[in-house]
Amino acid sequence: FHVTIHVGDITFHIHGVSEEEVKKLEELVRRGADWREIKKTIEEIEK
């Protein structure tokens, strides 16, 4: 999957994300995680 996440003024683009990881990111966004937490999760996914 290709994912784009907008957190305030920050936009993250992630490529090659599995469905499971998409759900993890959706959950973070849904519970209102700040951009640092989302960035950390994205960095883990990209490894």
Rank of each mutant, 00 (worst) to 15 (best):
F1V: 08
F1Q: 10
F1H: 07
F1D: 04
H2W: 15
H2V: 14
H2D: 15
H2M: 10
H2E: 10
V3H: 05
V3S: 02
V3G: 02
V3N: 02
V3D: 01
V3E: 01
V3M: 13
T4V: 10
T4Y: 11
T4D: 06
T4H: 08
T4I: 11
I5T: 00
I5N: 00
I5A: 01
I5Q: 00
I5Y: 02
I5E: 00
I5C: 02
H6A: 08
H6F: 10
H6K: 13
H6C: 09
H6Y: 08
H6E: 08
V7K: 03
V7L: 12
V7S: 06
V7R: 03
G8R: 03
G8V: 02
D9H: 14
D9Y: 15
D9L: 13
D9E: 12
D9I: 10
I10F: 15
I10Q: 14
I10G: 02
T11R: 02
T11D: 02
T11F: 07
T11P: 01
T11G: 01
T11I: 08
F12W: 13
F12Y: 14
F12M: 03
F12P: 00
F12N: 00
H13D: 04
H13V: 11
H13L: 04
H13E: 07
I14L: 14
I14G: 00
I14Y: 04
I14E: 00
H15K: 08
H15T: 09
H15Q: 07
H15G: 04
H15N: 05
H15P: 01
G16V: 14
G16S: 10
V17F: 15
V17I: 13
V17K: 02
S18R: 08
S18T: 15
E19D: 08
E19W: 15
E19Q: 10
E20T: 10
E20S: 11
E20Y: 15
E20G: 08
E20C: 05
E20K: 08
E20V: 08
E20F: 13
E21R: 03
E21W: 15
E21Q: 14
E21L: 09
E21Y: 15
E21K: 05
V22K: 09
V22M: 13
V22R: 11
V22D: 01
K23L: 11
K23T: 10
K23I: 12
K23P: 01
K23A: 11
K23F: 15
K24N: 07
K24C: 05
K24I: 14
K24F: 10
K24H: 10
K24S: 08
K24Y: 09
K24W: 10
K24L: 14
L25Q: 00
L25W: 02
L25I: 12
L25E: 00
L25G: 00
L25T: 00
E26C: 13
E26Y: 15
E26K: 12
E27W: 13
E27V: 10
E27D: 11
L28K: 02
L28A: 04
L28Q: 04
V29C: 09
V29G: 02
V29M: 14
V29Y: 12
V29N: 02
V29Q: 06
R30T: 08
R30G: 05
R31Q: 09
R31V: 05
R31Y: 06
R31L: 08
R31C: 04
R31P: 01
R31W: 07
R31N: 09
G32K: 06
G32V: 02
G32Q: 06
G32A: 06
A33P: 02
A33Y: 02
A33T: 05
A33F: 02
D34H: 13
D34C: 15
D34I: 02
D34S: 15
D34T: 14
W35H: 04
W35P: 05
W35D: 03
R36V: 10
R36M: 12
R36G: 10
R36N: 12
R36F: 12
R36D: 12
R36L: 13
E37F: 03
E37D: 10
E37Q: 09
I38S: 00
I38C: 02
I38F: 12
I38L: 08
I38P: 00
I38K: 00
I38T: 01
K39E: 08
K39F: 14
K39D: 03
K39S: 09
K40R: 12
K40F: 11
T41E: 07
T41Q: 09
T41N: 07
T41I: 14
T41K: 08
T41W: 15
I42T: 01
I42Y: 02
I42E: 00
I42H: 01
I42F: 04
E43I: 10
E43H: 08
E43T: 06
E44Q: 10
E44Y: 06
E44D: 11
E44N: 06
I45R: 03
I45Q: 02
I45P: 01
I45K: 02
I45N: 02
I45H: 03
E46M: 14
E46T: 14
E46R: 09
E46K: 09
E46C: 15
K47M: 13
K47T: 10
K47D: 07
K47I: 09
K47L: 12
